[in-house]
Amino acid sequence: MGAASAILIVLITILFPPIGVWAVAGCGADLFINICLTVLGYIPGHIHAFYIEYVYYDRREQAREGRYAARRAPGVYSDRVQTGGQGYGTMAPPTA
């Protein structure tokens, strides 16, 4: 299911970037930024959307392996993306 959902999100993002960001990050600052970038130019909206999706799926894979990112990804404001969809407060904090 993970690979199929990622492929579906990428296909949706190719057609309309804000829908891909909404599916991964929800309704928030990342979606607003992506809508503005898409209005300013189709390519910047794609770049931002694919970056958000990359961070989301990378963090999700790291969480499955038991590794947690020590720092927040720059330019990503959604906690859902930062945690890889693991929810709010359900991830163990990284140990220093």
Rank of each mutant, 00 (worst) to 15 (best):
I33K: 10
R64D: 09
L40M: 05
G45Y: 11
E53L: 09
G41Y: 09
I52L: 06
I35D: 01
W22D: 03
R64P: 03
W22M: 09
Q62F: 13
C27W: 11
Y54R: 12
R60H: 12
I43V: 14
P44G: 00
Y57L: 13
N34F: 13
P44K: 12
G66W: 12
L37W: 02
V21W: 04
R59N: 12
Y42N: 07
E65G: 15
D30T: 07
R67D: 12
I33S: 06
R67V: 15
G41H: 05
V55Q: 13
C27F: 14
R67L: 11
D30V: 03
W22I: 05
R60G: 07
D58A: 12
T38M: 01
H48I: 10
W22S: 02
Y54N: 12
P44A: 02
R64I: 13
L40N: 02
N34S: 08
N34Y: 04
Y51S: 03
W22Y: 12
I33G: 02
L40W: 03
G66Q: 12
Y51P: 05
N34L: 10
P44N: 09
W22G: 05
A25T: 06
C36E: 05
F32G: 08
G28S: 05
N34C: 15
H48M: 10
C36R: 08
D58F: 07
Y56H: 13
A25E: 05
H46I: 07
L37V: 03
Y56L: 03
E53I: 12
F32M: 09
A63K: 10
F32Q: 08
F50R: 08
G26P: 04
Y54K: 07
P44F: 07
H48S: 06
A23K: 03
Y51W: 13
I43W: 13
G41M: 00
E61H: 12
V55I: 15
P44V: 06
L40H: 00
R67P: 07
Y57D: 10
Y54D: 10
H46L: 15
L31V: 06
Y57F: 15
E61A: 10
F32E: 04
